[in-house]
Design a protein around this nucleic acid. Structure first.
Lengths: 224, 224
DNA sequence: ATCTGTGAAAGCATTCACAGCC
DNA sequence: GGCTGTGAATGCTTTCACAGAT
């Protein structure tokens, strides 16, 4: 219930928690009900120190000398990461990236998270009514209504970079609590709205760089 | 020509270099031919120190008291990032993510990078011959031939997690120089092959976490 | 004896201050 | 004077070593 952190959590920790959760789910399916920081570290390919430190940001979930109960730790991680609920989403900007994102069925049925698309928006009249995954593209003016009626949590911005701030303002006004920005620009939004930046092709760009510079090894990872 | 770095470069620096390049390209289009670390920093929303430090990893491109020549710096960054060439790519695994990736037209015509798909591969016989973006899905056995004849640089792994290592082995044998791994597992490959990990939905997961924990602010960014 | 939880040390990346060149 | 390039300082993340619980 009560989260401990007064300090800020490394972003990388959050990514790793998702990994631990995936491992725990898999252990559970195999009928294994106890594990240890060593075993989790082995699977996640990080150090056991790292596993324990990551968990320590949120509380104490193990028993000294014993390890962790798979079921308990799995539940705790689900709670911390927000997986006991569905996340309602909208896409603003139905260009090529928005369409690809709407068409991508994976995130709806990811075995961990439950993200659900509730609306698709654009300002281009020629796109109105276009059907994608059972939703029809609506005008941005209808965004607020959609957000209120469906209890939309987050919006994905996939408009051209020069329109990104407008889209963020519209999402703010509509009342979403978080924005995932695919446009390569930093958004200015009010403090109570979470913003995460996504560079869709960052992986390819880094890869191109490291192929070109084989003597440089990527030591920092995840990121994405 | 000669790259300076003996030290390892922060991964975040590479992402920022791409940002600087985008800004320089835009300045050039506007006919502006001189700029400064201050101006670049303003646009990129980082500090001027950061801009200069990032550039310093690769050499000296400015003139003290004067700033940078847009044209020169743009060219240098293009060279460093590998944008004077085309990157030939293949996708291994034509499930939902592989299909979405093949269908996504954006990375082919990105105004900075030139990535081109040269082949689509799977092991499932029922997928063979399936058409996507002018390419037909081939059996993984034909991967090596494709890589040799087209000079393929990198492969994207979009197979289920338990098949990811096999896909990596096949790509290694076929002779690619880099692998972009979308499966949530760490691959073991020979040292001379660059591997970058991509978590397609990491942004959404982080966002869910920060919406749930509004008192925690994301301070580390980009990554992606 | 075992394995967690955590303060302290080490390792990196960012920020800073200023020396060095126009 | 102005602005870059860079060693030194700061701040954050990871690693470590060990105290503490069973």
């Amino acid at each position: 219930m009560s989260q401990k952190p007064l300090l800020s959590i490394p972003n990388a920790t959050i990514s790793r928690l998702v990994t631990y959760l995936r491992i725990l789910t898999s252990l559970e399916q195999k009928g294994i009900n106890r594990t240890s920081s060593d075993a989790l570290a082995e699977e996640a390919q990080v150090s056991a120190f790292q596993v324990r430190k990551d968990l320590a940001y949120f509380g104490r979930f193990g028993t000294r000398g014993m390890g962790y109960t798979v079921l308990t730790l799995r539940r705790e991680l689900q709670r911390i990461l927000g997986l006991n609920r569905r996340w309602n989403c909208v896409i603003v900007g139905m260009g090529r990236l928005g369409q690809a994102l709407a068409d991508y069925p994976g995130y709806m049925e990811s075995n961990l998270y439950e993200f659900e698309l509730k609306g698709l928006f654009d300002i281009d009249p020629s796109k109105m009514g276009m059907q994608l995954r059972g939703l029809s593209v609506q005008h941005i003016n209808d965004l607020e209504h959609c957000v209120r009626t469906h209890g939309v949590d987050m919006g994905f911005i996939t408009v051209p970079v020069e329109k990104a701030q407008d889209a963020a303002d519209a999402l703010t006004k509509a009342g979403v609590r978080g924005i995932l920005n695919f446009a390569p620009t930093a958004l200015k939004v009010s403090d109570d709205i979470a913003v995460e930046q996504v560079d869709f092709m960052a992986g390819m760009k880094r890869l191109a760089f490291y192929i070109l510079n084989p003597h440089l090894k990527a030591l920092t990872d995840q990121e994405e």
